[in-house]
């Protein structure tokens, strides 16, 4: 326990903000999805860090992180399938050219 908890939280915050920037700034939808994956990883570091430093006796934090992992896998599968379907019909997956729903 020589490393303070806040170091892990700061690392997670940094990763989260990098992923946040990626989601907002990328033109390509797959690149934006990579940003989402970075954000989910940052959340998992927070969950595991709080588990280790605040409640190491019961493993709720780790089990939560496992559920986040499962939801991330589902999200990646559906997201990439959507992108492949959009690419097939529109020949592009740039998020600023996919504007069919724009009024």
């Amino acid at each position: 326990m020589t490393i303070p908890l806040s170091w892990y939280l700061l690392l997670a915050a940094t990763l989260f903000c990098i992923g946040f920037f990626g989601v907002l700034s990328r033109r390509n939808a797959v690149a934006a999805l990579m940003g989402v994956e970075l954000m989910l990883n940052a959340v998992n570091i927070n969950l595991v860090g709080f588990w280790r430093y605040v409640r190491p006796a019961d493993l709720t934090g780790q089990i939560f992180a496992i559920f986040v992992l499962a939801v991330a896998a589902a999200e990646a599968a559906v997201g990439l399938a959507l992108m492949i379907a959009i690419y097939r019909t529109r020949r592009t997956i740039n998020v600023d050219e996919i504007d069919l729903l724009k009024g």
Partner: peptide, 24 residues
């Protein structure tokens, strides 16, 4: 050029940096 940025990338960078400062 597939990995380019959209036109909001400066605002996104400023927002992310501000969020990081607040979280820190």
């Amino acid at each position: 050029e597939a990995g380019g940025y959209n036109r909001f990338w400066v605002a996104a960078a400023v927002g992310a940096a501000a969020l990081l400062a607040l979280l820190a």
